[in-house]
């Protein structure tokens, strides 16, 4: 009994030290066509950290982060129970402005998707619809965000060329800079490196470590080594449930759950 109280005290002191979480998922259940995809998800995402969600494919990682910016709303047969709070306000509140929620919670997808426009226009694609920008401001945003996405040196001489002329790895960094241009608080990344070569993947990993100074990052990956390299916190999911979560050190060196241990060793989950 005393031990329990102690551990609770310890937990709460850790939380206050990290200040209130940016995202708080509580008791989230998701059904698609009556199939229970996510089961009782409880997750807190602390500010300015990289939270990696790992797990085998089909474990519900994507569904979870796609629920956070409500991009799943349009999926046919999507139903949810439970709640997600972003900065202490429920994202499912009635008459909430979903578009402005998504300006604050940006997302980068697995497959880079550049619009059939120039490189510069791709960076400005989202931001120019939410703000009136002068020519100078536009040029500043393009340079700043391409630098932030470690792409500026490669494309500064050809900003008016089409985005699709870039390599896949460059296109993905272009998509990231497009998201950064919105100046969101949180960036959700859904396996952003899984279709990229190792060099581009490492470039994006390095970028994430730089970006966490300013942004809160939720990074879905099925690459365990990648999570080990960049994560502050690791969430392990399997079959729609969170099996275990904790700091990277906790998960990789002293994980409590046998499923976690077997996944980390064999990349296989016997759920």
């Amino acid at each position: 009994m005393i031990q329990e109280v102690n551990s609770e005290l310890k937990d709460s002191s850790v939380v206050t030290k990290l200040e209130a979480p940016v995202l708080n998922v509580s008791g989230l259940d998701v059904f698609i066509n009556k199939t229970n995809i996510l089961k009782d998800i409880n997750l807190q995402v602390p500010r300015n950290q990289i939270t990696c969600i790992i797990g085998p494919s089909g474990s519900g990682k994507s569904t979870l982060i796609r629920s956070i910016n409500r991009i799943n709303d349009d999926v046919l047969g999507y139903e949810k129970q439970g709640d997600i709070h972003f900065q202490n306000a429920s994202i499912f509140k009635k008459n909430i402005d979903v578009a402005s929620l998504r300006k604050n919670i940006g997302m980068v997808f697995q497959k880079p998707c550049v619009f059939p426009k120039s490189i510069a226009e791709n960076v400005l694609f989202g931001i120019q619809h939410s703000k009136k920008l002068s020519k100078i401001e536009k040029a500043e945003i393009v340079e700043k965000q391409l630098k932030a996405a470690a792409l500026w040196d490669e494309v500064s001489q050809r900003l008016d060329q089409r985005g699709s002329s870039l390599s896949i790895g460059q296109q993905q960094r272009l998509c990231i800079s497009r998201t950064l241009a919105m100046e969101p608080q949180v960036i959700l990344l859904d396996e952003p490196t899984s279709s990229l070569d190792p060099v581009s993947s490492r470039a994006i990993e390095k970028m994430m470590l730089d970006l966490k100074e300013q942004y809160t990052i939720v990074f879905v990956t099925h690459n365990i080594q990648q999570a080990k390299r960049i994560a502050d916190r690791v969430v392990f999911m399997c079959e729609g449930e969170i099996i275990e979560q904790g700091t990277t050190n906790e998960i990789f060196t002293k994980s409590k759950h046998p499923k976690t241990r077997s996944y980390l060793v064999d990349e296989y989950c016997d759920c």
Binding site: N69, I71, D74, A99, S100, L101, R102, K103, G106, M107, F109, K111, C113, F115, F125, G126, I127, H129, S130, C175, R178, T179, M182
Partner: peptide, 10 residues
């Protein structure tokens, strides 16, 4: 993915 990418940009 084009729809989702645009929606995700708010």
């Amino acid at each position: 993915i084009y729809r989702e990418s645009a929606l995700a940009l708010g």
